[in-house]
Amino acid sequence: MLIRFRNSSDVVPSEITDRAVYLRRRDFLAGTAALGAAVALPFNAVASPLSAAKSPLSTDETLTPLKDVTTYNNFYEFGTDKDDPAKYAHTLTTKPWKVKVDGLVDKPADYDLDDLIKDIALEERIYRMRCVEGWSMVIPWIGVPLASVLSRVSPQSSAKYVAFETLVRPAEMPGQKGFFQALPWPYVEGLRLDEAMHPLTILAVGLYGETLPNQNGAPIRLVVPWKYGFKSIKSIVRISLTEKQPKTSWSLQNPREYGFYSNVNPAVDHPRWSQATERRIGEGGGLFVKRRPTLPFNGYAEQVAGLYAGMDLKANY
């Protein structure tokens, strides 16, 4: 099994769900897969249960249903339609998985994923996720603080930024093949070191109590809840500590529309559309769903606004 760390005090899924029902879940998955419907399933066929401690940093807002979280995704490595990742990501091999850690660190290495996060307690973090396109979700992530992982590899004092890279594997990622490719690969992202070390910033390995579905960035992805979703890079294969501000995919693609910071900010519009409001996915209402106001730093201003004290947030979009 890929990642299954458990503290003795933690509640295991088998204690929550009736054991018989819990065991049948597999049969249901296997049975449906046999009917050839595996692709349409919201679950990853290889999902394993994860147990994680609850966190005071979680929101108590209503969760976006699992089905929406796993079928409405932007993961251009698998195609630009929202349902492409759910359709095509199931073939991605996520085991074994190495993460190269390099740059200004004392312990650079090609880490096996399990070793990179070994013995760091998994936490459930229920975060709002705001997409730059004007929609949002509430997702129960499971992961570890990025700070804990970075401490493990000992950043040097000259390190100012953290750069991230997504897997490039055209054989398993149809969006990386063919004539029309949405972005140059690999997808790259970055954070200032203090943003990366902030307690809200996590590396997620699961959601909804199980390992990450491939379409959500398995086996390990970044989650930075006060920034637009595209900052939260998926399927990470490289983490580099740098002195210079790293390049980021969307600002490379269109520097006028996407900046390095990309903090959620209702007062700074995308050049083509307003960021003042958002549609909360899956909250019901169907066709008649109402937009809600977008909050500065996606509602995390109290915790993170200090990181940007004195900065012009319009200029540093």
Binding site: Y72, W135, G286, V289
Partner: peptide, 18 residues
């Protein structure tokens, strides 16, 4: 499309799809 929208068959963001 309207009937799919009213019967929740347009996915996660039905208004946008419609």
């Amino acid at each position: 499309y309207f009937s799919w929208g009213l019967t929740d068959q347009l996915g996660a963001d039905p208004q946008n799809v419609l």
